[in-house]
Design a binder for these strands. Structure first.
Length: 249
DNA sequence: AATTAGAACAACCGCCGGCAA
DNA sequence: CTTGCCGGCGGTTGTTCTAAT
C-alpha cells in the first residue's frame, strides 16, 4: 500500500517517460479504468495511484484533443465558467476531448487575465450586510429580513455605480440562460446535468421538478438559506452575477 | 549567442464526499 | 455512528518552451 513508508520512498515523481506511458496504457487496456490503487502494481510502475490516474485522464486516454482551443470551445468555457465557476471537471465534461486540467490551465493562462482586465473600470456593488432604519418601508411591510437588501440585487443582478445601465442587465439572466438552454436542445449540455454532485452549486440548487429550474428562483431560495457572508462573497466572486464583462455578444 | 521573463503545460498536493466494514 | 479507503476535484507548483532584449 502507498501508506507503507518504504513504498512512499520508492514512489517516482516528475515527468512520465514513454516507457511508463506504455506500461500504463497496456495496463488500462488489459484491466480497464478504475481500481487505481491496483494500477501501479499491475502496470509495474513506481507511481502512486493518483499519478497514474492523472496521467491517464489528462494525457493517455484516447480521444483527448490536443492543440489550440477553438473559438467555440473558448466561448463555451467562458459561458460555463460564468455559470459554474471553477468547476473544471463539469466544464470539461461539456467540451468533448478536453480535460479538466486542460480547461483549468487554459483559463488560468489565457482567459483569467483577459476577462479580469476591466474594459472601462466598472465598479460592481456587491451586497453588503446593512441595517435598515425601523421606519423603513421594507421593515414596515414586514418583509422577510433575509431577503431585504438582497432581493433587488438577486432579481436584477449587480448594480453598477456609474448608473447608465439600461434594462438590458435586468434581462441578462434569462437571456444567457436561454442561450444555455439552446445548447441543451442541441444535446450538448443539460441544465439538470449541470448540477454538480459536490458541495456548492449542486447542493445549493433546489429540485428541478420541471427539468429547467432557472437561477433567479433558486438564488432567491439561496438567499434564505443560512449562508455566511463569506460564502456569499465567494458566490459573487465566482462570477455568477458579475456582468462587468459581457461575453454574450 | 546568451540571458531573462513570461507563457504554456504537466504534475503534485491536500482536501472532500461516497461507501463499505 | 465511526473509521478507513478510494476516487475525484481544484489549487498550486514545477518544468519546459518561446519570445524579447
Amino acid at each position: 500500500m502507498y501508506n507503507n513508508k518504504a513504498n512512499i520512498r520508492n514512489i517516482k515523481k516528475g515527468s512520465w517517460t514513454d516507457e511508463e506511458d506504455n506500461l500504463l496504457r497496456k495496463c488500462i487496456d488489459k484491466y480497464g479504468e478504475g481500481s487505481w490503487h491496483r494500477v501501479p502494481q499491475r502496470a509495474g510502475l513506481s507511481r502512486c495511484r493518483k499519478s497514474c490516474r492523472l496521467r491517464w485522464l489528462n494525457y493517455l486516454k484516447p480521444n483527448i484533443k490536443r492543440g489550440q482551443f477553438s473559438e467555440d470551445e473558448v466561448d463555451l468555457i467562458i459561458r460555463l465558467h460564468k455559470l459554474l465557476g471553477n468547476r473544471w471537471s463539469l466544464i470539461a465534461g461539456r467540451i468533448p476531448g478536453r480535460t479538466a486540467n486542460d480547461v483549468k490551465n487554459y483559463w488560468n493562462t489565457h482567459l483569467h487575465k483577459k476577462l479580469s482586465r476591466p474594459k472601462h473600470n466598472p465598479r460592481i456593488v456587491r451586497p453588503q450586510p446593512c441595517t435598515l432604519p425601523k421606519a423603513s418601508s421594507l421593515v414596515m411591510d414586514k418583509l422577510d429580513p433575509l431577503s431585504v437588501g438582497e432581493s433587488n440585487v438577486l432579481d436584477n443582478g449587480p448594480i453598477e455605480e456609474d448608473g447608465d445601465e439600461d434594462d438590458d442587465d435586468a434581462n441578462a439572466i434569462p437571456r444567457w440562460w436561454e442561450k444555455l438552454v439552446q445548447v441543451t436542445e442541441d444535446g450538448i449540455v443539460g441544465v439538470e446535468q449541470l448540477n454538480g454532485n459536490r458541495d456548492g452549486l449542486g447542493s445549493q440548487k433546489p429540485n428541478s421538478h420541471d427539468g429547467l429550474n432557472m437561477w433567479p428562483t433558486s438564488n432567491i431560495e439561496m438567499s434564505r438559506s443560512p449562508i455566511t457572508h463569506v460564502e456569499q462573497h465567494n458566490i459573487w466572486e465566482d462570477n455568477l452575477w458579475n456582468f462587468d464583462v459581457n461575453v454574450w455578444e
